[in-house]
Amino acid sequence: MANAAMPSPLPSDAPMVQLIGVNKWYGQFHVLHDIDLTVASGERIVICGPSGSGKSTLIRCINRLEEHQKGRIIVDGTELTNDLKNIDQVRREVGMVFQSFNLFPHLTVLENCTLGPIWVRKTPKAEAEAEAMSYLERVRIPEQAAKYPGQLSGGQQQRVAIARALCMQPKVMLFDEPTSALDPEMIKEVLEVMVELAHTGMTMLCVTHEMGFARTVANRVIFMDRGRIIEQNEPEEFFNNPRSERTKLFLSQILHH
């Protein structure tokens, strides 16, 4: 089985991420309906669905880039509320990779990676730089450390973004359509880095259309539509035996491109 080489999620009492009855409105538009989700430590979750289904909003609620109005979100034991201390605590443990990379163009690649450790984790500069270089090596672009983001290709920028998030040594990594803004020939290099990351036992939530990645790496695939979780299952079951009509429709659209 494709998942045989992957470390399986650690059985533990406390799940890493918990969403209980989460609801969110934009004005009067109900964008998340009663979301219940539990993610164990080391689990890899792929979330897919048509555009507007709320999948990006869902993971952005987990690191408080969006606020939920009803329900509870608990990350590694800390509940997300309006309390700034809790938000800081959660953000320290959660790393995020964006669709449009969002690298800081006025800082070098190395400075992008060390910004968080130096100013948030209060790491001394030399130590932060050494760690950053090791992560840059993991994403296979250590030689670009002194360059500026504007000088890199899209695929390289996204890998730097992954390294930047990893430098904070998070317990959970969120990916918001990491390859959607990339030219086709660069998608592979980023997916490879994500697969390697999965090998290390990182808890990952990915919103993506890359179904091959889902098959290789995911423990669970979740299908969302119009703000609700319609179906979730192991990848093999999900792709071969979709239960809901909407899931079937979506899969037929996406797997025949």
């Binding site: 880039l65 700034l84 800081d88 953000r91 320290r92 690298l103 800081f104 910004l115 968080g116 100013w119």
Partner: peptide, 18 residues
């Protein structure tokens, strides 16, 4: 300055002032 810059910086854990 694109909003994504603020989001990326916030998700690293930096507070508003920083």
């Amino acid at each position: 300055v694109p909003w994504g810059q603020t989001e990326a910086a916030s998700s690293l854990g930096l507070r508003r002032g920083l």
